[in-house]
């Protein structure tokens, strides 16, 4: 009996089905590119029309008051950086401590209980944290430290954003530390190092690229967080530039949210409405830079074991 070519190539119907399925899957994959293009185009078109409508000096006016034609970028960018800085001050020690404990010290059973709890914290919606910042963090934390803290203030919002990103930083850092091979730890113990020296001088430096990437991702999330600042940082309608975290102020996302809430702008056209897209474009670019940076850090400084 001889084997002919048709036997080996198989049933043509199967091949056709194979090609069809592959095309469907490819189409789904390509759809993600379409989404990216749609995001960039919709942001760009309105942002450009915003820039052509206004006098560029308005981007450097006193304060962010879109309804009065004042679009001071310094105000909302400085406020964004303030909130992000407070968030990082809260999240980096908490996240790193949690990650180091879970990765290097926690007994198995403890880990099995605590890790899911961190994930529960990660699942708390940001509106809830915003309300918590306004009704709990402001009176119980901010006003204990600074008595004259305003009801709406950037400090409480920053702390809440920090709580929001603790699980993110912790899980990325923990993954990075657990990826450090045990041989390094054993070599360190073999040289007579204590556990804390092994943790601080062997494991942490070996995992530093992943940990740094986690910090950058956390910062990116903090910059883009909207609901917490919209509820707790206050200053709907506009704000003047301030460097005090005890005062209210609009961040980039806060400015967008308050433009969206103002029912007159959202429906219409005009500079205030389109500034929404301009700020959105800035936000998109900022977070994109941070996200790309975090990937670069991982790729550039990763030790291969």
């Amino acid at each position: 009996m001889t084997t002919t070519t048709p036997d080996l190539t198989g049933d043509p119907a199967r091949h056709r089905k194979e090609r069809r399925v592959k095309m469907v899957m490819l189409a789904a994959g390509v759809l993600t590119i379409v989404v990216s293009i749609a995001i960039v185009l919709s942001l760009l078109s309105e942002a450009i029309s915003f820039l052509t409508q206004i006098d560029l000096g308005q981007l450097w006016a006193k304060g962010w008051f879109p309804r009065r034609g004042r679009f001071d970028l310094r105000t909302i960018i400085v406020h964004t950086l303030l909130v992000t800085a407070v968030a990082m001050v809260v999240a980096v020690p908490l996240g790193m401590g949690a990650a180091t404990y879970l990765s290097e010290y926690a007994p198995r059973t403890v880990r099995r209980v605590l890790k899911p709890l961190l994930e529960v914290l990660a699942g708390i919606p940001s509106v809830v944290l915003g309300f918590f910042a306004l009704t709990w963090i402001t009176p119980n934390v901010m006003r204990r430290i600074w008595e004259d803290t305003e009801l709406f203030n950037m400090g409480a919002a920053g702390i809440a954003v920090g709580i929001l990103i603790v699980p993110l930083i912790a899980s990325v850092a923990e993954d990075a530390m657990r990826a450090v091979p045990d041989a390094l730890r054993e070599a360190s113990y073999g040289l007579g190092a204590r556990r804390r020296h092994t943790t601080l001088r062997v494991v942490l430096p070996a995992a530093i690229s992943g940990i740094t990437a986690g910090f950058i991702l956390g910062a990116s999330r903090a910059v883009g967080e909207t609901m917490i600042v919209a509820i707790a940082a206050g200053a709907s309608g506009g704000s003047l530039l301030t460097f005090k975290i005890t005062e209210g102020g609009q961040t980039m996302t806060g400015a967008m949210a308050s433009l969206a809430i103002g029912s007159d702008q959202i429906a219409g056209v005009g500079a205030a409405f389109q500034s929404l897209f301009f700020v959105g474009l800035l936000l998109f670019v900022f977070t994109l830079i941070l996200n790309v940076a975090s990937e670069r850090v991982i790729r550039r400084f990763r030790e291969r074991y």
């Binding site: 994959g29 993600t32 590119i33 995001i39 078109s45 883009g224 909207t226 967008m256 936000l283 790309v292």
Partner: peptide
């Protein structure tokens, strides 16, 4: 596509709101 998906996952949610609006 892979890099794009990762970046999309990092885009702030309010920017998706702008996409939805536009």
């Amino acid at each position: 596509i892979v890099a794009n998906v990762r970046n999309l996952a990092g885009v702030p949610s309010i920017v998706y709101g702008l996409l939805g609006l536009a």
